[in-house]
Write a protein that binds this DNA or RNA. Structure first.
Lengths: 208, 208, 208, 208
DNA sequence: AAATAACCGAGACGGTACGTCAAGTCTTGAG
DNA sequence: CTCAAGACTTGACGTACCGTCTCGGTTATTT
């Protein structure tokens, strides 16, 4: 078995990417696809904490063993499923000024969070205690979008460090709106965020 | 049994407050206290998703049925426990200026979220699907602290609508720091939030 | 409380008849009637082991405590209900000969057992272990019907001791038919029992 | 999952004999042995209705789920345990005449019923309502002994149909003695049954 | 071609927790 | 006092998943 000892506990070596030593029957990639699709579908149907590996296996037409051979637990599976999913790319910086670009990016970010990340948040929440490595990995997934997104904001009329500040403020405000306030991120809210929060913070010359 | 039919499903009538018709043995309030204390203690010890009703019952010295008689499920119990909890009050506005007051409030808010709300977030994620009423109630709990908190910031040298803006931005940034970035809210971070984000947004005359 | 100590266990004194010491609010006899009716009805509906005190109380419109105040447990309640029940009297010995009388009695006995005693049997099986006194009481009830029944068969053309033999054989054969063979006691079976078993055994002069 | 749909309800396929499709990890037969032994032992110790699956699992050193995976409920488990048990075979027809053979068989039957079947009777009685299939199965078990037993009585000086009559009368009379009359089946009673009931009924030439 | 090594489906297994139910006791208020 | 209502403890129930394991069988690569 693919176990090794560390301290007194047996850990299984999970593949970061594939790790395949080349020998032996290779893994069937279609199984991954099926598992990810089933996981995402069930995630939106029943929510994260009602999501069971058993159900994912059944829906994907895959043996439970096949799942556990690849993923440590539910959180890791969901993380992989979300990562692999086709996240729509953030919008290209159009010809408009800073405000137009911010509006586009925030609008895209709000939709992204509202539609999909809610499952990731559950997985993150469940997994971060007790498995810091997994938590770090899920943060990496979240950051992936962030960097791609903040790249759209470099240059221009921005104060120094504006991109980092954007990444610090914008997602938090949007999540707060959705989860805590329980309200939709309509266009009015997007304009409010850009005009009343982001522009004052990011625009060069505003701050002393 | 205290069931009634709604559609094709049998629902149990859960008491919002007490519902007691006056007849029969009244519910022992100490049981509620014990349950809430056990729930909160275990919540911080093992986290939300490792939290089991079985363990709460054992810790509280209470029968499982007694819990199920009062709360539909784990999320509802956690919600009640959190609501009843002694939320430490936000600090009084001392004699210092706006910056000192902001620092105190943000420092308090960061500790509050890090230590306690983190469990509520789990309950919120878990319960909001399938029971919007519960989700709404938990949001109400969160809002309660927020309004109590923003009251500390009225008057002074604030721009109009500053309190609402604070409630919109501060918790989001803190949660983002803890959950997404996975970093502690040390004093350096608190000063950063106040100096680089809040003060520019809230100070009167800064914004055009 | 109506408890007394025997060894280390607390026993409650249950009334054989009423025991009322005259002090306090008198028991409402209609509650007994309701409880008995509910018990008998549910007994034939769901069987003995599916019979729950909870259901009896609900059906009778009586509090569970009211039942426990009067009867030790399910078996005792069923025993009382059966005892009080209107057992249809065995048929009078008509003008016909021995065979006609036997046919009438066996037919009545078969219906009696099939419809009602079947529940008592469950109580008997369940209660006889652990409470021999209760078992003896239920046997007394069964015997009461038997003796009333065998009285119909005295005199006539019977061999000496025929009535006792009848009480020994007939119920056993009928119960065997119902419980072990799982078949109905139709008229063909009744004639078979009378012609092939009872008459050869009971008729005077047949036996040497 | 080993489920199939019947009507609107999902049933689990329980193995009558083994049913194993050959695929998957095979069941450990020693688990069956342990469960049966524990069930029979506890059955005689505490009686059927005090018999709990929990206790059987503990005694057998087997997980509760392992029991529920194989048997629908308590009655099914007891039925299987009883069926598998080595029922002592009825005595061989010795060289003696009809009376000696009858005495031997009835004596064996009385002991069999008195010592062991009492638990089975309870199980049969409790389970036969509500689960006709189980009732039928337990009847099959009882019949198995009966046929083996009546085989000892064929030929000889018997009236035609005597074996069937024996199977119809003897068990009923014995059960009646034990359960209804609450008396032991001593040797005096055995002789009484043979001489006063069975011989008159079964002997060739007695009946017309 | 054969051996090797890993993958895969199916399902048994020991567990933990679930949510429900019934039994029997205890606590209140009303008659 | 007795009575009715209902909270409460205890513990069994049967179900759902968990994560591990053992099979029989199937690919691939390596020898």
């Amino acid at each position: 078995m693919a176990y090794f000892r560390y301290g007194t506990v047996a850990y299984r070596k999970w593949a970061q990417v594939s790790e395949s030593s080349g020998v032996g029957r290779p893994r069937d990639v279609r199984r991954d696809v099926a598992m990810h699709e089933a996981a995402l579908a069930l995630l939106t149907e029943v929510g994260y904490d009602q999501l069971s590996i058993e159900a994912i296996a059944a829906r994907a037409g895959v043996a439970k063993t096949t799942i556990y051979r690849r993923y440590r637990d539910k959180a890791a599976l969901v993380a992989a499923a979300v990562e692999q999913r086709q996240g729509s790319a953030p919008p290209e910086p159009g010809g408009g000024g800073l405000r137009e670009n911010l509006l586009a990016v925030v609008r895209w970010l709000a939709r992204e969070i509202a539609e999909q990340e809610i499952g990731v948040l559950g997985a993150l929440f469940a997994g971060m205690r007790g498995d810091p490595r997994l938590a770090e990995e899920m943060r990496r997934i979240l950051r992936r979008d962030q960097t791609a997104m903040t790249d759209r904001l470099r240059g221009e009329e921005l104060a120094p460090g504006a991109a980092e500040l954007f990444a610090e403020v914008a997602p938090g405000v949007i999540v707060h709106r959705i989860v805590f306030a329980g309200q939709r991120c309509d266009d009015r809210f997007v304009r409010h965020v850009v005009d009343d929060i982001l522009l004052p913070l990011l625009r060069k010359g505003i701050r002393t």
